[in-house]
């Protein structure tokens, strides 16, 4: 077996040493630092991206929260406005209703007064007509001419009974 031929050992050991040292130099001076740098840089970029994403997400969340708050505030404010306006409108409406009601009541009262007056005057003229009629009837039928006072009293009594 060539493996157990010691005549080649010195040469193999020498070149093993030379080549291994050369490879070690290449690996430790070129391969490892360069690839290590690439991997580190990549890890850094990824970490930076993740950090930025986290930061942007926080900003977005803050913006959303601000938006929600603004919306809630606006809604509350609008509600307040609406309440004030509703109250104002109700007050105006109540006032108008009251005014109209007062006017109507006044007109009703006036009308009632006029009706009462008309009724009174009608009653008064009825009294006069009744008295005159009674006097004429008495004058024509009985030939009497009763004095105005007794006729009036009799008519008043009769009207009182008729009522």
């Amino acid at each position: 077996m060539p493996q157990f031929d010691p005549s080649s050992f010195a040469s193999q050991l020498f070149w093993l040493l030379v080549m291994f040292v050369a490879l070690y130099w290449i690996v430790s001076r070129i391969a490892v630092p360069r690839i290590g740098e690439v991997l580190e840089q990549r890890a850094r970029v990824i970490q930076d991206d993740l950090d930025r994403a986290t930061q942007l997400k926080a900003e977005t969340d803050a913006a959303v929260a601000a938006y929600d708050k603004a919306m809630a505030d606006a809604r509350a404010q609008a509600y307040e406005h609406m309440k004030v306006i509703q109250a104002d409108m109700k007050a105006v409406a109540d006032k108008r209703t009251a005014d109209v009601a007062a006017t109507v009541a006044q007109q009703i009262a006036d009308a009632e007064a006029r009706i009462a007056q008309a009724k009174q005057s009608a009653l008064d003229s009825l009294k006069t007509i009744s008295a005159d009629t009674a006097r004429d009837v008495v004058g024509k039928l009985a030939g009497l001419s009763p004095d105005a006072g007794s006729v009036d009293a009799a008519v008043a009594a009769a009207l009182k009974d008729a009522r």
Binding site: S7, S8, A10, S11, V18
Partner: peptide, 9 residues
Amino acid sequence: YDISYTNSA
């Protein structure tokens, strides 16, 4: 020492 450059090297 024989340190010839060989096929192994």
